[in-house]
Write a protein that binds this DNA or RNA. Structure first.
Length: 730
DNA sequence: TTTCTGGGCCTACAT
DNA sequence: GGCCCAGAAA
């Protein structure tokens, strides 16, 4: 084997730098690779895997590679496939995907049906609302989200209701909610995201036979993004690798940004303690960015305590300085970005696909969508108001899930009255309670709903009709493709009439369903129709928004700092560089979270190859109100020598507030006068300032307590408070 | 009991 | 801007 591509592999090996080569050629025993941003990690991993197959003659199906996204998994398989044969038989995927594959085979050893449904976050919330009702808890005092956070944290620590520590009365309530929640999942034949990992671990812990079998299967284990593993994932990996000790982990503690999902940087930092004989390799040569960009990144990250010291370097000479600019508000920020993109296109032949706009929260994309739409700048939005979260898509998926798993209480509750069929909340309640009490499939319960006391008499007929419809659809599963089954659901349930209400939104809803059918056609090749349905639903549940990202599509990329990890762009705009956004206000009030915000900033900066822009707004409209903002404290960590003066309508970042001079002249959150201001200035007016000199007013905006001015001085653009700054009209 | 409408509340990051 | 709930009408 491994003859086809061996020359290609040799060529690749010849281009590696010494530490990269070490990482590829260390084939025996534990290996830890610290791979800095842009250090050629993907090349190393592919070469390593190909090397194992070609040199070590390891069977590809004995290799397990855990990646962070499905996209990364696909890429690794493709790239290894170009080097050696048999790559399609490797096990490559995310932790969750691997857990599902194992559980689809072995779930019954744990008393879980193999055709379990996967609950997403929405489903979990519905399930929790049900729990609150059952336990008569006030959702105001016990917000479902909060309870689910607790439960998620517990599950990531491999705890269950019996083993979780209870130290207070409220812990006890969490424990009861947890137990009840698991009960709802169990009667629904469902697992939530955290259960997938937890149960995979349980499987390995409780069944020696399964442990033996999976260990034997995965002789070589490789884990990417190890810094983002949580405790459950850590145990999973280490259980699998304990016997053969052929474990290679790759990561960068500076890029650990998923602690809110339970990720623990200590997993990577203590790898050498776990495996004292581990070989450690550091990849610090950067093949991506210019030195000024790397320096800026270093200045930000170096202030974090408890990091493994490393500094990226590049032999590449020169490079533009980083542009830091302050704009008036989020609309002007987007306009500025649009101006710069068009300028770089004209002057440097830049393509739209070379540009990314990175932000902290999805809500920030709106201003860019508006401005780019108006200015005909093509863009692609990653994440955000997602296709899969649209009501009509979720409705149809709930139907499919209920057809596939007639016990799924959450899906039943969702579609019971969609379209309206006189099955209201009281009826749904009664049916669900009965299903739980009898431990019976909810669809089965619909059959004799008339016999259930709590079910309103008027509801018996519509329930029976619904049951017949669901059963008839269920009977079609083996015969129809998923796309055709979706068509039948729409037809039998009369969904077109329900969604198409004559409005443009109604038409859009049906278009979304057409798109869903289109996506389902990708499973047409599977001859086993029932399996196609199961796979379709599984992959949808575990899909990530970056998975569908195509590098060569046209358009500016709009993406969050979390999802952009692993991507790179010639030109990067990091927008909303303000205290409150980055670092996020929640992190400011919880100092434990600050290092992570810093890492997020670091991840963003290191995405840039040639040009980096950091922008902030003076005033921002967010969460339904408009507020003045302070530039991000992270901006102050980047020395002036690395920064360039912004072009055109933008102002440089003002120094921090502590400066007395700034306090005197620039905007203050509590203006001296409480009276509603009157406009004293207007655009075009010539003014004079004791420090900045002569200038021209570019813009005046009246806000509740102030008149805010954008003024162009010889020294550059400034944003000032009209009521506070000592400006005189010339 | 279901359906419809308006007001109050909360608001990251995401497999 | 989205979700939940209260209150009124059918």
């Amino acid at each position: 084997m491994a003859t086809v591509g061996s020359t290609a592999l040799d060529e690749l090996l010849a281009t590696l730098n010494p530490p990269q080569r070490e990482a590829v050629e260390h084939l025996d025993g534990p290996l830890l690779i610290f791979a800095g941003a842009g250090s050629g990690k993907t090349r190393v991993l592919t070469a390593r895997v190909a090397n194992l197959i070609a040199q070590r003659k390891v069977w590809p199906d004995r290799l397990l590679a855990v990646t962070f996204t499905n996209k990364a998994a696909r890429e690794m398989r493709e790239r290894v496939g170009r080097l050696v044969e048999g790559a399609d038989r490797m096990w490559v995927g995310t932790f969750h995907a691997m857990a599902v594959r194992m559980l689809r085979r072995d779930a019954e050893l744990l008393g879980i049906p193999r055709s379990f449904t996967i609950f997403d976050e929405d489903d979990s919330r519905s399930a929790m609302n049900r729990v609150l009702k059952d336990l008569a808890l006030d959702p105001k005092r016990f917000p479902p989200r909060r309870l689910l956070e607790h439960i998620s944290r517990a599950k990531n620590e491999l705890l269950d209701p019996e083993t979780m520590p209870v130290e207070s009365r409220s812990d006890e309530l969490v424990r009861r909610a947890f137990a009840r929640y698991q009960e709802v999942l169990r009667t629904s034949g469902a697992l939530d995201f955290d259960d997938l990992l937890l149960q995979a671990v349980r499987l390995l812990q409780s069944s020696p036979e399964a442990l033996e079998r999976w260990r034997d299967r995965f002789r070589y284990v490789l884990v990417d993004e190890y810094q983002d593993t949580n405790h459950a994932q850590y145990v999973f990996v280490n259980l699998l690798a304990a016997e053969h000790r052929q474990l290679a982990v790759v990561g960068d503690d500076d890029q650990s940004i998923y602690s809110f999902r339970g990720a623990d940087v200590r997993n990577i930092l203590s790898f050498e303690k776990d495996y004292p004989d581990a070989k450690v390799v550091r990849l610090e040569q950067n093949y991506r960015s210019t030195q000024p960009i790397l320096d800026a990144a270093y200045r930000v990250i170096v202030r974090n305590p408890e990091r493994a010291e490393k500094r990226l370097w590049t032999p590449r000479a020169g490079g533009e300085r980083v542009v830091a600019a302050q704009l008036y508000d989020e609309v002007e920020e987007a306009e500025y970005v649009a101006d710069e993109i068009e300028r770089l296109r004209r002057q440097e032949g830049l393509g739209y696909r070379d540009v990314a706009v990175l932000y902290r929260i999805n809500a920030q994309s709106r201003a860019f969508e508006d401005v780019f739409g108006r200015r005909r700048i093509p863009y692609r939005l990653v994440g955000g108001i997602r296709f899969w979260e649209r009501a009509e898509v979720k409705d149809v998926l709930a139907y499919l899930r209920l057809i596939q798993n007639p016990a799924d209480l959450v899906s039943f509750a969702r579609i019971a009255n969609v379209p309206r069929r006189k099955i209201g909340s009281v009826t749904v309640e009664a049916v669900v309670t009965a299903a739980q009490a009898r431990s019976q499939d909810v669809v089965q319960v619909l059959g004799d709903a008339g016999a259930i006391e709590a079910v309103p008499r008027a509801a018996a007929r519509p329930l029976e009709v619904l049951r017949r419809q669901l059963e008839s659809l269920r009977a079609m599963v083996g015969a129809l493709t998923v796309a055709d089954l979706i068509g039948q659901v729409i037809e039998v349930m009369g969904l077109e009439h329900h969604y198409r209400d004559g409005s443009p939104q109604g038409d859009a809803r049906m278009e979304n369903l057409d798109e869903l059918r289109g996506l389902a056609r990708e499973y047409d090749f599977l001859q086993d129709r029932a399996q196609a349905l199961e796979q379709f639903l599984t992959e949808i549940a575990l899909r990530s928004d970056v998975d569908s990202y195509q590098e060569d599509d046209e358009g500016v990329t709009l993406i969050t700092l979390h999802m952009v990890k692993g991507l790179e762009f010639p030109v990067v705009f990091m927008v909303g560089m303000e205290d409150g956004l980055l670092p996020h206000s929640r992190a400011i009030s919880d100092p434990d979270q600050m290092p992570e915000e810093r890492r997020l900033c670091y991840v963003g900066i290191t995405r840039a190859q040639n040009r980096l822009y950091l922008t902030c707004a003076f005033r921002r409209h967010l969460y339904g109100e408009s507020r003045p903002c302070q530039p991000s404290r992270f901006l102050q960590d980047i020395p002036k020598s690395l920064l360039a003066r912004p072009t055109r309508g933008a102002a440089p970042i003002p120094p921090p507030r502590q400066s007395r001079r700034e306090q005197l002249f620039e905007y203050q959150t509590r203006p001296a006068s409480v009276a509603p201001p009157v406009a004293r200035f207007h655009a075009g007016q010539q003014v004079e300032h004791p420090i900045f000199g002569r200038g021209v007013v570019v813009k005046s905006t009246l806000t509740r307590g102030d008149e805010e001015l954008v003024v162009r001085f010889d020294s550059g653009v400034k944003i000032l408070s009209g009521t506070v700054a000592p400006l005189t009209v010339r």
